[in-house]
């Protein structure tokens, strides 16, 4: 119980260190694009280019209209880009901050928040492109689309507990990081981003068993089809309930040993 209080204290003091983790995250991005001409515009440029090529190539293989498929891929791939980057970054959150962890007594959630915030900065720019793509929306706007905002909030919460679980485990078991990276590459094909699931058949089953397709659905469905995907929402909320508990347990159990692992 004592450990649990200490863990809570870590999180509450980290939450107050907003300028610290936001600046560290900004610095990460600056490091990545230092001495480039385009700078952060690279994020938008590479995303837009990717989507265009994907629509051009895979659009040939479907029978939906080019407009609809374009939005479908832009939204799906935009969300996937965030999810994929976040899962991989969650693994490296502690390893990446090794110099700080071994050099200062900063509470560890700072590094998790730093990783999440960094990904949101990138996601923010991708969201801009996604918002632009909505210009070609094929259905009329309704209030259902507003459910996107709670959905994005769920993304943020999920990222936090995911980082709290993956960061220490990947620091301890280095194979896990590579396993996660490899499986994310496979899961990409198992997620309905480049293909549209039929109402039955093997692809439909695949989409239903894959938790990430539910995460995608809670944002994409209300925007594209003005539909609130109740099944997907319950799956996502269920995962979050389990994840929050698991995140708290893993964080509490590992916080004393992280300095030995990184």
């Amino acid at each position: 119980m004592n450990q649990f209080t200490a863990a809570l204290q870590d999180w509450s003091s980290s939450a107050r260190l907003v300028p610290l983790w936001s600046n560290l995250a900004l610095e990460d991005l600056r490091d990545r694009y230092r001495r480039t001409v385009l700078g952060l515009a690279w994020i938008i440029a590479s995303f837009a280019l990717f989507v265009t090529v994907k629509v051009f190539v895979f659009g040939q293989l479907t029978n939906v209209s080019a407009k609809e498929f374009g939005i479908y891929v832009t939204l799906g791939f935009g969300l996937w880009t965030y999810i994929n980057a976040m899962v991989v970054d969650a693994c490296t959150a502690y390893m990446h901050s090794r110099p700080w962890i071994l050099g200062t007594s900063t509470p560890y959630p700072v590094f998790l928040l730093q990783a999440v915030f960094r990904n949101w900065l990138i996601f923010g720019m991708i969201l801009l492109v996604m918002a632009l793509a909505m210009f070609w929306k094929t259905t009329p706007w309704t209030t259902v689309s507003l459910s996107v905002f709670p959905a994005l909030l769920v993304y943020a919460v999920s990222s936090l507990w995911l980082a709290a679980i993956l960061a220490p485990l990947c620091a301890r078991y280095r194979d896990l990081f590579h396993a996660v990276q490899t499986s994310m590459r496979l899961i990409f094909f198992a997620t309905p981003i480049l293909w549209i699931p039929a109402t039955s058949g093997r692809l439909m089953l695949l989409a239903q068993l894959n938790p990430i397709s539910h995460f995608v659905a809670i944002v994409r469905d209300p925007l594209m089809y003005n539909r609130l995907p109740m099944t997907s929402w319950s799956v996502v909320l269920g995962i979050n309930a389990v994840g929050l508990v698991a995140g708290a347990v893993v964080y509490t159990a590992t916080r004393r040993r992280i300095a030995h692992w990184v």
Binding site: L17, E27, R30, D31, P99, L102, G103, T104
Partner: peptide
């Protein structure tokens, strides 16, 4: 308790000296 350890710890190699000072200050609350 503040510490100064190995020089490679707690600094960002790519950032300027000023930027590192600011980050150190933020780290110290």
């Amino acid at each position: 308790v503040s510490g100064i350890f190995n020089m490679s710890l707690g600094f960002r190699q790519e950032a300027s000296g000023y930027r590192n000072l600011v980050l150190k200050g933020l780290m110290a609350g």
